[in-house]
């Protein structure tokens, strides 16, 4: 599904990713953990094509397609979805309208017919229910005045509606209370599918109790330093990242 080879990327000429390799097969859930500033969000932006993140070396393939040559919206249509560490507010644009515009753009790009107002409403209601969100939330402007947790939940709602192939979740658990964490994790779990892969970025093993990963990786100093099963997360929680400092590595 996703194949990242020797990825080097920089911001403003400052190298952040320095030869990152990662393979994710269809249906797998991978977790990435790592210290602050390690380059986790950078990886998510490089995958989704954000301006200002320059790839200097390496390759990213999604189902054999060269992701790095695509525009951000083409990547979205190809199935790349990023749940943002900090979801953005768009004043005056209702959630409903935003979701409708996004889904229809993606459907159009994929050569599928656009959904009409009635079909859309039905779909959005069903997805909102799945994530325990009220219809009232659909009528509010995108993320405006939402609490931190509501914003995260809203991003997962978008994910549920757009049904991507590769879901990158950047610290989706931060800011969620315990109940919200369960609801969101359940929502994510219902989206697990044989043809959908997930890359879950988190600082806390707790999230991984709810979203059970197949693999856990440590990203530090621009590379994957170690990979393992879910037990690696427990070990990191106990010992921290000291072992991965350049002197120690």
């Amino acid at each position: 599904m996703l194949s990242i080879k020797n990825l080097h990327a920089e911001i403003d000429g400052k190298p952040i990713l320095k030869g990152l390799d990662l393979e994710i097969k269809a249906g797998e859930v991978h977790a990435i953990m790592g210290p602050n500033g390690a380059g986790k969000s950078t990886l998510s932006y490089v995958l989704s094509g954000r301006d200002g993140y320059t790839v200097t070396e390496g390759q990213v393939l999604l189902n054999g397609q060269d992701v790095l040559s695509m525009k951000p919206e083409e990547r979205a249509a190809a199935g790349v979805f990023l749940a943002f560490q900090y979801p953005v507010e768009i004043p005056g644009v209702t959630n409903m309208n935003f979701l409708k515009t996004a889904l229809n753009s993606i459907r159009k790009a994929r050569g599928e017919s656009e959904l009409d107002a009635m079909q859309m409403l039905k779909l959005l209601r069903a997805k909102a229910k799945l994530l325990g969100m009220s219809e009232e939330m659909l009528k509010r402007a995108v993320n405006v005045g939402f609490s931190g947790g509501e914003k995260k939940r809203n991003d997962i709602l978008q994910m549920a509606v757009l049904e991507p192939k590769l879901c990158v979740l950047d610290e989706t658990d931060s800011g969620l209370d315990i109940d919200a964490l369960k609801v969101v994790a359940e929502g994510v779990n219902t989206l697990r599918a044989a043809d959908r892969s997930m890359l879950v970025i988190t600082h806390y093993q707790r999230l991984l109790d709810y979203i059970k990963p197949d693999y856990v990786h440590v990203l530090a100093y621009g590379r994957i330093q170690r990979s393992g099963g879910p037990e690696l997360a427990l070990e990191l929680e106990a010992k921290g990242y000291a072992a991965f400092a350049p002197e120690a590595a």
Partner: peptide, 18 residues
């Protein structure tokens, strides 16, 4: 804001218009 919209499938001009 522009990138957020583009990540959700809108092109730059659609994003600006929205």
């Amino acid at each position: 804001q522009l990138f957020y919209c583009q990540q959700r499938g809108l092109n730059a001009e659609e994003a600006m218009a929205l």
